[in-house]
Each structure stands twice: as C-alpha cells, then as structure tokens.
Design a protein around this nucleic acid. Sequence first.
DNA 1: CATGCGGATAAGTTTTCCGCATGCACGATC
DNA 2: GATCGTGCATGCGGAAAACTTATCCGCATG
Lengths: 298, 298
Amino acid sequence: MHDPSLRQLRTFLFVVQTGGVTTAAQALGLTQPAASQQLRELERAMGVRLLERVSGRSVPTAAGRALIEPARRAQAAVEDARAVAAAHRSGEAGRVRLGTGATACIHLLPPVLAELNERMPGLEVIIATGNTPDILRRVEEGDLDAALVTLPAALGRSLTATRVATDPLVALLPEAMAPSGRPSLTAADLERLPLILYETGANTRAIIDAWFRRAGLAPRPIMELGSVEAIKVLVAGGRGCSVLPALALGGDVAGAVVRPLRPALARQLAVVLRKEKVVDRGLGRLRAALKGAGGQPG
Amino acid sequence: MHDPSLRQLRTFLFVVQTGGVTTAAQALGLTQPAASQQLRELERAMGVRLLERVSGRSVPTAAGRALIEPARRAQAAVEDARAVAAAHRSGEAGRVRLGTGATACIHLLPPVLAELNERMPGLEVIIATGNTPDILRRVEEGDLDAALVTLPAALGRSLTATRVATDPLVALLPEAMAPSGRPSLTAADLERLPLILYETGANTRAIIDAWFRRAGLAPRPIMELGSVEAIKVLVAGGRGCSVLPALALGGDVAGAVVRPLRPALARQLAVVLRKEKVVDRGLGRLRAALKGAGGQPG
DNA sequence: CATGCGGATAAGTTTTCCGCATGCACGATC
DNA sequence: GATCGTGCATGCGGAAAACTTATCCGCATG
C-alpha cells in the first residue's frame, strides 16, 4: 500500500468542502480529470472508497469522513512548516547559538543583545559560555554557530575569525595610588605598583605579559584572580592596581581611577565561525551588532 | 514556491535523526543521490538552507531545527490517516447511518444492534428516526446510508429495497374480550369489537385497512393513536382490542392475549438504499443482522 | 428529445523521481 | 605528504507519475 500524498489529501478535502470534483479542481487550479485521478489514486492507496456520487454531489463515505480530520491535521502541519521556513527566510525568525570564550565578553554582550532584540525581535540568541578551546571545538562541530573570542586564538583550519572590536586595556588604580600629573602609565610605572592581574593562562593575561615584555619588564602581581569583578573590588578597596579591558569596567569604578596605557594596548575581539558556514540573516545581524558595539575593529 | 512533499519531509527527518544523508537514504530504501536530490528540492521549495555539512555529519540549521516539529506532526497526521483507513478497510471500524421510518422498527433494532456490536465491535451505528418519506429522501441525498421501512413504500427511481423480514400482524385483546375456542380471528370478528388502531396515514394502518377491505369491511376504531406503547396499555386496561405488529409486542402483554389473524397478515420490512450504493462491510453486516432477526424474509 | 452539468475514461505529453556513474572535499592511514 | 576511504554533490538516462486535452456516459432539466 502506497502512502497518500499531501496533494491527494488536499484535493480530497477540497472535494468534501465544495461538494464536487469539478469545483474542487478549479479551486486548486487544475483540471477536473486531474482531481479525479488523484481521488482514485488516493482511494487505491488507502484501499477504501472515500467518496460517493449522489444526486449531483460528491459525499464522503464513512471512511472518508473519518479521513477528514487527520488530513486537515497534515495540511495544517505542512502549512506550519512553510510558515516557519518563510519566517526564517525573511529573517523574521532565526536562532543563533553564540559561544563566548572569555568572561570579559559577558560585559560586551548585553547592549549588543538589546540592540539585536530591537532590530530583529524574532531572533533567538543562545549564549553558551566556556573556555576558549572548548567553545571553538563546539563551533567546529556545528554545535554552536559562532564564537566571540579574544585574539590570538588557536583556530583550527576549518575556522575563520573576523575582527569585530578593539577593546583597549587600561590601568585601574585606587585614587590614592594614581600618580598625579601623568595622563597615561607605562609598564615601568605599573611595575612599581602592587599589581592584581588576571590569572596566568588567560588570554588577556598573556596580552598584558607581552606588553610588559616589550618594555623589557615582567609583571610581578601580588594577586592573580580569574574574576574581573573581584579584581575591581580589590582595586577599589585600595589593595593594588590592575590592567583590565575597558569593556570590563563598564564605566567608572567607585574609589578607583582609570588611566590609559602607554604605549596603548588593546585586545582584539573576533567572531569565529566555520569557513563553510553560510551566514544567515540572524548571524549576520549578530555579527554586525558586535562590530558596532565594541569600538574600532582595528 | 512549491509545496514541500511528504517524502521530502520524511527524508529530512531521517537525515536529522541519523546524522547523515547516506544512512538516511538506506534507511528509506533508496540511494544516496535520491535523498540528496530530495533535500535540495526541499531547501529550494522552502527557500532556506536546512542542513549543514560539518565534519562528516549533517546538522540541521536553525531553520532546519524549527522545521523538525511541524514535519513530525505532518508525518504523524498522515500515519493517522493511514491507520484510520486501514481500520475501515479491514472492517474493524466503520459507520452506518440508518434511518427507520416507522416507530415499530425501534422494537426490531435493539437485538440487531446487540448482535452487530458483538460481531463487529468497531462499527458505529447511527439511528435516525423520522417519517418514511423524509427518511427516504435523506437516503437519496446520501445523508443516510440505509433506511429500514415497511413496504410498500414510495421509492424513488434511485432507491432499491431488499426485504429483510416479515413481521406478522396479530390481534391483541383484553382477556375479557378474547373469544374462546377460536384460535384465530377474522376481520369480521374484529369488526364487532372496539378497536384501538394506529393513526390513519401510518403505513401499518394502511395495511390493516387493506386487510379489512379484502374482507369487505372497514374498521371503525374507537381510538387512533400514533404510539404502539399507548395502544398496548389501553388494550391491557380492557379499553378495546387492536391489531399490532408482532415485533412491537416484544413478548407477552400482561392482561392481554395475542391471537393470529385469519387470513394471516404480515407487513414486509425492507432495507432501502440507493441503487449505486457500495455496500461496505459495516452496511453488509447491518443488513445481514436485520435479515436474521426478523423472521422469514417472505 | 435536446441540452447542460458533473464525472469517468483514454491517450499523449510534460514533469518528477530514481538509479547508476562520476567527481569533489575532507579526514584517516601508512 | 601521498594515498585511500568516506560522504555528499552532480550529470545523465530510463521509469513512473501527474497533468492536459479530448471524448464519452449518466442524469437532471426544459
């Protein structure tokens, strides 16, 4: 027994509704024999008579009446499928699964997501957090659509990164420690102060270490922490000073002052996705919003 | 934009489930290029990419994931349709709408329906009551599948009647009125007694009148009623005697005696259906049960 | 009895679908 | 790093399906 086709069920429903094969046929935009053949084929596939011709009208049999409801359900389901696809095609709907590698990225996302929600309300954004290698692996496997990480990152050959933002690193000092008359601080300046830095191994910490290294110095932090919030609290409490991404500060920190570095230091934020990834509208919008939110893509 | 086909949705679901086009193809019993083509056609029809190839596996995109649920619903609905049709084909299920013209038929139906329910539990029988012409009209229009009426009936040319039972008419008398020593009663016997008969115009009444007419007499009832139950009560109360279908008595009537008529009189019960009506299993069973329940089809 | 309507049927054509063969990309293996 | 194996895409040819045109039949109507 063959499966009934959607078209056959549709024609059947139209016949039941209009009460005639001819009317149903022209409502469906095809000729009467075509509709007749579909009905015959449907009856053959189901092994049951579905329609009776009675006094000029076509009336469903018992089996036909029983078939109406599931046939309607099938039609509705396919219609839903089409609607869903249309929503995705037009960009009204969509889903983007984004992984963020560093915790600092969390400070960048909220305004981005707010803007995204405003410009594309139907887009569903799923944020997954984790360490950078894990996030990148999930992107490679297709479990995530994109990742927002700080460069440099160990990208596989199947991944590609596009810079979306430059996040300057700045010095954060307690008001008491801030050298007066100096708008910006050098590595030598900081090296003389008690430092509270990111934990070793984090990407941002590696960038900071390289900056010190370029000045021929090596930072000797009195504390290393994995949480930027904890560092901020400690600096505000006068325990030491730190070098933090400007984005992570989110504005002023009470009891602490922000000073730029000299030479300027910044980390690169990039969106990483698979090379073959087709950028649909939702992903494109997310990437655009990230680009716009994070300063110059440098 | 073309409609997606059931087969395409099915293939898509299999690909999502198995994680590969090839595995899905062989699970569906077709070759890999066939499945590939279906997927391509489905994506073209929907205007959205549905699958991504990533590291040897096929993973649904956002649109694809959104499509899974309605696609499953469509599959399930069609499966339901098939199941329903299969039930009707095998005779497990079915529906027969039967119209009964005379109220007397109600006395015949209960045992018939009981037997029917025993032999074909899935069969749904719908009984519609009404006067004979109305019932027959509804049969002609396909609103009813069959009618159980007493002959003769004014059948249209599109209807055909098959006799299913002979229902003898008998005299019902109060014990006080029963003539002793006479096993059967003639029209002359009854003409001398107070008669309580069906109302004029009813089919059964016409048969009784004709029986009297054949004896050169005309009944002069003291009462005419449309309810056989009411007549039974009146006869049992000694108010008069009547001529009733044996089936309508359903057994003995307390306080009354039953006597056969001489010459014997019977009415024919017939199942009426449209000439072109295809007799499915449910209708056939119903007709057979009616034949078996009502005495000789005469 | 002619006519119109609705449906069934037949034949021919276009479209679709599938299988086979082939090519391409990626990952694994030696 | 060259080779092999796997998985998917593509092109082509034949089979099957679906649609259209044309015709016929039954039935109701004037």
